[in-house]
Nucleic acid binder design. Structure first.
Lengths: 221, 221
DNA sequence: TAGATTGTTAATCGATTAACAATC
DNA sequence: TAGATTGTTAATCGATTAACAATC
């Protein structure tokens, strides 16, 4: 679904703003770990190479979070951003594909302190099916069981970590089974109905964009 | 480095355009695999949920690629886009971190038909160091050796797949050793000089953005 | 109170969309 | 030639930046 269609379904801020919010969250968490209690938009901007005007503007879409003359209480704003982004809930996540990538995702450290709970993995390799993966004992089911299990386990978000040729089929199964969001790690473009949000997490696309800049930087040396 | 600073160093198009170009490339490749020879911007847009005006506008920054009344020759435009994105060269890539993620990346199918050549992995686990990983026999060196090996192997792009707390240090080593681009898989914000381009590939940030839309979609049900 | 920083409005800038002449 | 689609210019829209009154 594109951004315009999305607006029919939710009164969300634009994708750039949402992306920056996740970024700000990372920065505030990092500062908290370093022992800070308060930070101004100016300090935040200088530290992380951001724009202080934009930081304040972005927050202003959601209310007033700072203290004039002082800045932002870090603990407080972390909670506020989490609330805005919907990170105070728990999301059930299922991973299609129990290869290297699927496993790396399943092992991903804590996956945001319990916000995202990986409840199932799917694969079509008979040797993997029926086993449990990793420290969290995530059950691996056959891909055939995906529709049934996704419903049963009330999965909210599906992760597509299968070969590209199977991506659309897996996406269709996830959608049919009622997920609201998909994270697609394959290079394939997948089509979904407009009430499902997808994010593209294809490494290759990102690496190619990097190549564009690297090749142009080198030219100007 | 932010987009404004970048412009000092290269006459690149904006990040949104570069990103869309990688996207178009994927679409054209997919159509080629399906046996198509020609496609119009309109067909492309309908098929992949894009905007045909924008497709033509994006191409126009780089020249004229289509045939009026007909559309685009798919083989031809694939080559053109690859040239624009700098994908006709070979980039030496090194991966810091030989955990699940590092391995998944090293195994990533063909990594764009030889455009990106993974020449080394680095880890600080003594049991991994000295071994070769995977079908491509990628040597695993100790992180201490990173600066030396990166220079020796003429690495262009560094991938950061280590724990977040080590990200900045690894980035510094890569930069010092002369890489032009960094792909950062950790949630840590890394600071680099303005002649190095970084892309953020943190899963968590993407998943959080997805959560924002999912939680808002659900509300309006 | 004086200094600092927020929240917000107005001004600017850039990106997308609309429209159409050029031409295959 | 007629129909189709490009490449490009002009119009619109949205996002960022600048500026400053409000207030801690």
């Amino acid at each position: 679904m594109n951004e315009k269609e999305l607006k029919k379904y939710c009164s969300c801020v634009s994708e750039v703003v949402a992306k920056r919010l996740t970024l700000y969250l990372r920065c505030f968490i990092q500062l908290k770990e370093e022992g800070y209690d308060f930070v101004s938009s100016k300090e935040l901007a200088e530290r992380f190479n951001l724009n202080s005007d934009l930081i304040r503007k972005d927050f202003s879409y959601f209310g007033t979070f700072g203290k004039r003359g002082v800045g932002y209480n870090i603990d407080e704003i972390i909670e506020k951003i989490k609330t805005i982004l919907g990170l105070k809930k728990v999301y059930n996540v299922a991973i299609a594909g129990a290869g290297n990538l699927g496993k790396a995702l399943a092992d991903y450290p804590k996956f945001n302190e319990g916000t995202f709970r990986i409840v199932a993995m799917f694969d079509n390799n008979a040797r993997k099916v029926g086993r449990k993966y990793g420290v969290n004992n995530i059950p691996i089911f056959h891909v055939k069981e995906l529709p049934e299990k996704v419903k049963e386990l009330e999965v909210d978000i599906g992760i597509i970590a299968v070969p590209a040729r199977a991506a659309q089929q897996v996406a269709d199964s996830f959608v049919k089974a009622g997920v609201s969001g998909l994270m697609n790690f394959t290079p394939a473009r997948i089509a979904v109905p407009s009430n499902v949000k997808t994010v593209c997490a294809d490494f290759r696309a990102q690496l190619e964009m990097l190549a564009y800049y690297v090749s142009n930087l080198k030219k100007s040396e």
